[in-house]
Every structure is written in C-alpha cells, then in structure tokens.
Write a protein that binds this DNA or RNA. Sequence first.
DNA 1: CTGGATCCCAATAGATACTG
DNA 2: CAGTATCTATTGGGATCCAG
Lengths: 144, 144
Amino acid sequence: MSDKDPEKQAGQSQRRSGCPISFSLDIFGDRWTLLILRDLLLHGKRQFRELAGSEEGIATNILSDRLKRLEVSGVLVRERDPNDRRQVIYTTTEKGLGLIPVLLELAAWGAIHDPQTDAPEDFVATYAKDRETVIARTRKKHQR
Amino acid sequence: MSDKDPEKQAGQSQRRSGCPISFSLDIFGDRWTLLILRDLLLHGKRQFRELAGSEEGIATNILSDRLKRLEVSGVLVRERDPNDRRQVIYTTTEKGLGLIPVLLELAAWGAIHDPQTDAPEDFVATYAKDRETVIARTRKKHQR
DNA sequence: CTGGATCCCAATAGATACTG
DNA sequence: CAGTATCTATTGGGATCCAG
C-alpha cells in the first residue's frame, strides 16, 4: 500500500515467470481482485460505492488500490459520468470481459464443492448454458 | 505461518460470504496456490522437491503451508511412496481435478493478453480441444 | 454527498537459515 | 528430502480526513 517507490507506482509489479497462468495471477492472484471483477462483470456494478457495499466488506483503501491496478493493467477504465460529473464510473474493457469464463469456472467449482450451495448442478448448468448471454449482457451494460 | 492458535490449525479460515466464487477464492485466492496446482495438474509433479523447483521460486515454508491447506480442503492427499518410504507423494483428488478447467481458462486469458506469449490462439485452441485429454492424463498419473 | 487518500497498527506473507 | 524456525516485509482493517 502506501508506496513511496516510484517503480511500483508505475504499475509493473514485475512478473515472476513466462508462464501465462503466472501472468494472469500477477494481475488478479489475490483475495480481492476477482471479487471486484465478479461485481463488475456478473453483477453489473459500476460505481465505487456499489463495489464497496459488497457482502464481503472490502476496505476502501484496498478497493481503491485494486481499481488502480486494474486500470493500469487495462482491464477496466475509469471515467466521469457525463450526466453527473460527480459520479465516477468503472467500465470493463474487452480484456476485462475476457475474464468472464474464468469467473464462471470459479463459480462452477465453488458451487459444486461448497456444502452451502443448494443446487450445484443447476448453477453449473445455468451458467454454462448462458455463458454467451452473460458476456453479451455485460458488454451491453458496460458500453461507453 | 508458525501458528499457535488451535482455531486456525484446525483449518477453517472462515469464509467471507455465501458466494461460490468467494468460496473458491477462500481456498486458492492467493499468489501461489494455483501455481502449485498447475504443477500438480498440468505438469505432473508429485513431490515437494519438484514443486519447490518451479520457475517462480516459491519459498519452502510457503509451499509447505499451501500443501497443508490444500490437504485440509480435500484438494489433495499427502502420503508416503510405498516403494520408497522416504518419499512423500502428493496426489490430487477428484475435487482437485475439478480445478483443471479453472487453470485452463486462466492460461487461455494469460496467453491471449500476455505480450510475451508467441501464438496465443494456438495455445487456446490446443488446450480447449484437449481439455478432456488433460483431465484424463492427470487422473491416470495421480492414481493411487 | 461520492470517491477516494492517509495514518496507524495488527495480521499475514515471504525470504533465508537451519534441522530431523 | 521435506520440511520448521526465525525474522523482515507487505498487506489489510478501521478510522479519519479531504477534495470536488
């Protein structure tokens, strides 16, 4: 967090290897980033306040930090609402939309192995079937 | 790490919400766990030494900690090699095998968006096509 | 108001050295 | 070989402050 090192401020947290999985994890391999992307991509949230209000209770400094990193990584863009200049709006890019399959696989695995999920098969069947629908819906919602 | 608290030794790091994505991330939402699973599931590694030798250079205490957590979560089992009692062998369970699609989506996204990956489309095409092959191969290798 | 930035301090992750 | 111990660095929570 509170970072004095200009190297890091610039964004590049330097990668650990040439592996594409490692590349992905260097961007969203932590406990919060994918939850933020879930809210943006699957729950249609777009504002800081909405994201901060999620069930898991992310701290505002962490949310702020992750949004910045995602912007630097090109997964989302930050801009003002043209209708209400006070509002900041976060919009996922194509690069961000590409993460929907990752989120759905994560959700599918969780639903199957989480004893708290009621009907895991239904969940998986629904989201597997509607994958393209989810992507289309999010793309529409996140138009600029 | 070095943990005196019996609550935590028991394993349950307590979940943050009822969301299946959050459930998944509570298990492997960190910078290392999915790299270990990559090595087990996609690279056929089975021993501590092999896992410790990966390109990313994981510290042995972290590796040890993550393997313990994954065992508690039921993603893998730890046992001695019957042929060589000195060897410890890590074997993925069905629950663990279920993570292969997650890893492949992660790899696909990384390959497409990583400027260092040469032929991202080929990568995706190959792994998308061979998904079942990968699962079958890993299941065979991780038989007990 | 919303969207953060900052500070403090606790908790966790991690690198390195060392051991049964 | 397969870890543990120790010590340091980083992250995270919570409150508070502040600019537009």
